[in-house]
């Protein structure tokens, strides 16, 4: 917008006014994101309780304690959840996007219907799967029992060996629709001419997928996977409602561990230290994402 000549009735310049318009958002950002971020990171250097006033400077003691104890198992759980929780919905979402990109009857309706698991509140996702995984009356045990695959009910969420996979299944269910929509939007930009040309050169379906479709989707695939990784790395809702981090800490990821340490253990210092380590790892992912997004925008 070209600045108009300033008159006495409009003492503010366009630039100043433009900046002032962002003030409400900046105040919210400062109060709800920036200040709490700095505050929580500072807490990691103190011995501080949620329920008692006062705190004592302890240097890096909290970091030492956390690295000796929780950090490594929590990191492993977070990596498993993030890794499988990204790959599984990606494969399902991609397969579905390819299938819906054909001339299937009713595909617009199907695309909308498939969004349902992603649209509903996160706690409802957890409720539905809690009930399906229920050891005594659950649907999964019922089907496996009828098929003769199990002799007696399995406690999917109560067994440390299966709980994490059960949680990942629930998260996969809630994640794949978004990936499907993104990839479908990308697929629709692949020029039909390219496929025609490749088809005339004798390339089969698989080769055309590999040499035409995939290269064209590279950017969107990268963005989708990186964003999923970043979101899964800090995911809380599904895990917390399904298992609360249990059994025996088998599904305790960073989000659950920081939350529990602060709001159940009341130990803000250790929660801050664990959160600081978590944030550093997260920032690495965010930097990778921003770099990738910028490079894609340029090309």
């Amino acid at each position: 917008m070209t600045p108009l000549p300033t008159t006495e009735r409009r003492p503010l310049s366009d630039r100043t006014f433009g900046f002032l318009l962002t003030l409400p958002a900046l105040v919210l950002f400062g109060a709800i994101v920036f200040y709490p971020l700095v505050g929580s990171l500072t807490t990691s250097l103190f011995e501080q309780s949620l329920v008692q006033p006062g705190r004592e400077f302890v240097g890096l003691d909290n970091f030492r304690a956390v690295l000796d104890d929780q950090f490594w198992p929590v990191l492993w759980n977070t990596l498993v959840f993030t890794g499988l929780g990204t790959i599984a919905p990606f494969l399902i979402g991609f397969a579905l996007a390819l299938a819906l990109n054909t001339r299937l009857p009713g595909r617009a309706l199907l695309r909308g219907a498939f969004l349902f698991p992603w649209v509903i509140p996160g706690v409802v996702v957890s409720f539905a799967w809690l009930w399906i995984f229920n050891a005594n009356y659950g649907l999964l045990n019922g089907i496996l029992f009828r098929l003769g695959l199990i002799a007696e009910p399995v406690s999917w969420l109560g067994d440390p060996d299966t709980a994490m996979y059960a949680v990942i299944v629930a998260k996969t269910w809630a994640s794949f629709p978004w990936i499907m929509v993104m990839l479908l939007a990308g697929l629709q930009t692949v020029p039909g001419v390219l496929h025609e040309a490749a088809g005339m050169d004798g390339a089969g379906v698989l080769r055309r997928f590999w040499h035409v479709t995939l290269p064209h989707l590279r950017g969107i695939i990268g963005i989708v996977i990186l964003l999923e990784i970043i979101w899964n790395f800090q995911h809380f809702d599904t895990i917390y409602v399904l298992t609360g981090g249990g059994p025996a800490g088998a599904t305790t990821t960073f989000a659950v561990a920081v939350y529990d340490t602060a709001f159940k253990g009341f130990d803000l210092g250790r929660a801050g230290a664990l959160g600081a380590l978590w944030l550093v790892l997260l920032l690495v992912l965010v930097v990778v994402y921003v770099r990738f997004a910028e490079r894609e925008e340029q090309s």
């Binding site: 994101v33 709490p36 971020l37 505050g39 989000a255 920081v258 939350y259 801050g272 944030l279």
Partner: peptide, 11 residues
């Protein structure tokens, strides 16, 4: 991009 559980400690 910031983890909400961490912000909540101070919030």
């Amino acid at each position: 991009m910031f983890p909400q559980a961490l912000l909540l400690i101070t919030l």
